[in-house]
Design a protein around this nucleic acid. Structure first.
Ligand code: FES
Ligand code: FES
Lengths: 117, 117
DNA sequence: CAATAAAAAGAGTTAAAACTCTTTAATTAT
DNA sequence: ATAATTAAAGAGTTTTAACTCTTTTTATTG
């Protein structure tokens, strides 16, 4: 459906948004245990989220991740773009090259309802 | 979204349903060229479809694939199960273990509309 | 200003999906 | 019956996603 990475990223973002504040940072260990996501792998994903401004972080003791002013308003699709690229959006559900309302594939209508653009 | 294999399987099935009859079989070469799907890979997928009774086939000269009495009525989800397993159905969009109406994840409602069960 | 604690960065390995090639079995036509 | 043709089966390789480990950087705290 979507990549596992996307699921991890989204859940971690929500986790940090719920449990963290600027004065109450959430550690990687905490997140990975709380959500059952492989520790090191989640580390990589968090780097990406911070790089793209979805969350903020600080290093050092009592450092960790915390939401910023944007976090609550970020569209899901932004995170999806970060983790899965935007092929999900450009492509039809079946990966057919040129599909649109004029040249629809057999599934075009069924899936139009599920497309997020 | 879905595996490429699913897209190939579905398109090939439609192709055979449209172009083939019991007295007018469609060759693998024909399908793979017509749809732009890697020849050998499609062969493997077709084997699976025939094994599961989605299509029929015969070997030998002027052999090939052709629709059977079920082909037209097969639900899409059957093909999806063959190619992608039924994890797509059991699992929530994010792969969270225990998600249901009682314990919904943040996306549960958004995605419920897209689930095919 | 050390010592320590945390994320960032770099450089991998492992597992799964996508794809290829070769051989075998079945069918048809000569 | 033999040769030709086509799918089935078996056994790979390649590519991508998932995951791990080690080193470096940055901040905190005693
Ligand atoms: S070609 Fe796939 S949704 Fe239209
Ligand atoms: S837990 Fe994912 S849709 Fe509900």
């Amino acid at each position: 459906m979507f990549s596992k990475t996307f699921g991890y990223a989204l859940r971690a973002t929500v986790y940090v948004a719920v449990h963290g504040r600027i004065d109450k940072k959430v550690g990687l260990q905490d997140i990975s245990e709380g959500l059952g996501i492989p520790h090191y792998f989640l580390g990589k994903i968090m780097q990406d989220l911070v790089r793209h401004g979805i969350l903020d972080s600080t290093k050092g003791p009592s450092g960790g991740f915390f939401p910023n002013e944007h976090t609550a308003d970020i569209p899901l699709t932004n995170i999806l773009k970060i983790t899965d690229g935007n092929l999900v959006f450009d492509q039809c559900a079946l990966g057919i090259k040129r599909c649109n309302a004029e040249h629809p594939c057999p599934l075009h209508d069924d899936f139009a309802a599920c497309q997020m653009k």
